[in-house]
């Protein structure tokens, strides 16, 4: 007995130590600002899976594969569906999914650079729109409306600015035809006056789990001039418009991400799940 007891105690101690380490790690993941990026990635993986299963791309089998590595962006696209809201916004019976990503977290910072006015990706978003059910290609006006819907009714309210107080003024736009990924696209370039996300937090927002909690700011959702580029293609068989979008505060940064991500994107068609 006397020889068994210490071994059992040691095992128990080891087990307790391991449990304690796990608890500390979980606690850190849950509360430590330095772990904000890992917390965000862990939570967004679950969140994304829930939305992805009801997305346009899941149901049609068509998705935009966007290369994000090395771009300074958060390393995954997050999916959000808003069929009813978009149907009401554009009119008709539509399906709408937006995939989006934003500035990555900087090391040892508890928040994404999306909040940092000195970062080139301040207020930036990149991703893809999927609009199904229009019966035709989206018009230039509809492309603008989709972008406005995304920014003014989804993105900014999630960051704590109500859509009533959010600004989205189109300053200019132009369109041209381009060819990549073996298909024809219409490239829309625009500049837009809209709000950037810098703000001093008052209370807790769910989006802080995703972007981290911003530092105090001397500006509340300042108006920024954003350079936007949306490349739109239409897949008649699925009655699906796909828009690859980039929006940043500088023409140069938008051009860079357009080159590194949008133009390298592949539209992938997989068997539709039963």
């Amino acid at each position: 007995m006397s020889s068994v007891q210490p071994a059992r105690r040691r095992r128990r101690r080891r087990w307790l130590t391991a449990a304690l380490i796990v608890l500390v790690l979980l606690g850190n993941l849950a509360f430590n600002p330095w772990c904000a990026r890992w917390r965000s990635l862990a939570l967004m993986a679950g969140y994304d899976q829930a939305y992805e299963r009801a997305s346009v791309s899941y149901e049609t089998g068509v998705s935009a594969e966007m290369p994000l590595a090395g771009t300074g962006l958060y390393p995954r696209l997050i999916t959000f569906n808003a069929d009813e809201q978009m149907s009401a916004w554009l009119g008709g019976d539509l399906r709408f999914t937006v995939d989006f990503t934003f500035a990555d977290f900087e090391p040892w910072r508890g928040y994404s650079a999306i909040y940092d006015p000195d970062d080139p990706l301040f207020g930036a978003y990149l991703g893809a729109y999927y609009v199904q059910g229009l019966g035709r290609e989206m018009t230039a006006t509809e492309v603008t409306q989709v972008a406005e819907f995304d920014q003014r009714l989804l993105a900014l309210p999630a960051l704590g600015l109500s859509s009533r107080n959010a600004t989205f003024d189109l300053l200019d736009s132009s369109a041209s035809a381009i060819w990549f990924d073996d298909r024809q696209w219409t490239a829309y370039q625009a500049s837009v006056l809209t709000n950037c996300p810098a703000h001093t937090p008052e209370g807790f927002l769910l989006s802080y789990l995703q972007f981290g909690k911003p530092p105090a700011s001397d500006q509340q959702y300042p108006l920024c001039v954003m350079a936007a580029q949306i490349d739109v293609t239409y897949l008649p068989a699925e009655d699906l418009s796909i828009g690859l979008y980039v929006m940043t505060t500088s023409q140069d940064e938008t051009a860079r991400l357009h080159q590194e991500v949008s133009l390298q994107t592949q539209i992938v068609q997989r068997p539709v799940p039963r």
């Binding site: 300053l171 500049s191 006056l193 108006l223 920024c224 001039v225 023409q251």
Partner: peptide, 11 residues
Amino acid sequence: VIGRVIESYAK
């Protein structure tokens, strides 16, 4: 915001 819009265009 007026200056912001003007400067970003001029740039």
